[in-house]
């Protein structure tokens, strides 16, 4: 647990009350602990508004799915969380996004720190044209780890966590481009894990993959949520229903409904959500 989280815990529980470690662990697992708190987020590409007044909390160690039709702002929202959206120069935002109670737009929190703690897996597998090993070791090296023995450990652990170690342990020096699409995507997940983030943002990670690779990635997500908080954008509603704990439905840049996945799919509050999940549009 980071110092910040500890601070937050102690301030929540009051300075006089001692919390047992077991209880504290319980509380960390509790549904109320959130990694992201987004309030009144508006976002513009130039003069086009893409997001309207989004307020949403993202719970720790759970899988949060974001669904919605194409162009509804779900990817934009995801990329706002680690400020990747700023790769587009004309982007402007208002509102607040707090990551572990820190405002991500305040100068004290550099964008490099944020992206170290909030990793990302992209829609299209995007390995570097380097070996599998160098791909996974990229992040640790960027953060200054040079010793081969430590890098070896990180690479092995990350590939194991991404459930691809057994397939690739004898092919670490092969160029990542020679792997299949599904393997490339899991190497990209391993690469994201190697930086030891808290949160992993996944932007339609299976949209370029075949069904078997998709299944493997979905199983992996289930496994990863024990250690990480995961936000996954998907246009595949079955996938959201299968793997997520909470689901948010976006439409035309607005957050229409955000609820427990079972509730949202079985008994949505909003008519538009119902229309979308029953396939009446989208």
């Amino acid at each position: 647990m980071s110092k910040l989280q500890e601070k937050r815990k102690s301030s929540e529980s009051g300075s006089n009350i001692k919390v047992s470690p077991a209880r504290q662990q319980e509380m960390n697992k509790g549904p109320m602990k959130s990694v992201f708190e987004v309030e009144n987020l508006n976002l513009w590409y130039g003069s086009n508004q893409a997001l309207y007044e989004i307020s949403m909390q993202i719970p720790q160690n759970q899988v949060t799915a974001i669904i919605g039709p194409s162009g509804c702002g779900k990817s934009t929202y995801l990329k706002a969380l680690n400020r990747m959206v700023e790769m587009v120069p004309s982007v402007k935002t208002s509102g607040t996004i707090k990551y572990n109670d820190q405002n991500i737009y305040k100068d004290k929190l550099t964008v490099e720190y944020l992206r170290t703690k909030v990793g990302m897996v992209f829609q299209k597998p995007n390995p570097f044209p380097k070996s599998v090993y160098d791909n996974v070791a990229y992040g640790p090296r960027v953060h200054g780890i040079k010793k081969r023995a430590i890098l070896d450990q990180i690479v092995e652990k990350s590939l194991k966590d991404a459930a691809i170690w057994d397939e690739l342990k004898d092919r670490l020096n092969e160029n990542a481009y020679s792997l299949s699409g599904g393997q490339q995507q899991r190497v990209c997940i391993a690469r994201a894990l190697a930086v030891e983030p808290d949160v992993i943002l996944m932007d339609e990670p299976t949209s370029a993959l075949d069904p078997i690779s998709t299944l493997k990635v979905e199983e992996l997500v289930q496994e990863l949520k024990k250690k990480y908080s995961i936000v996954i954008v998907t246009h595949n509603m079955q996938q959201a229903a299968r793997i997520s704990d909470n689901t948010a439905f976006f439409l035309n840049g607005e957050l229409i409904e955000y609820a427990d996945t079972n509730k949202l799919f079985q008994n949505p509050d909003d008519k538009r959500t119902e229309d979308y999940i029953t396939g009446r549009f989208g």
């Binding site: 490099e112 992206r115 992209f122 995007n126 990229y138 992040g139 953060h143 690469r191």
Partner: peptide
């Protein structure tokens, strides 16, 4: 140089210069 690979680097917390030196310039 494809944007996707630069994004991959930025997405891991690399600075602009690190991304240039390790990804963009070699490519």
């Amino acid at each position: 140089v494809p944007n996707e690979v630069k994004e991959a680097s930025y997405g891991m917390g690399a600075t602009k210069w690190q991304t240039i030196a390790r990804v963009t310039l070699p490519a």
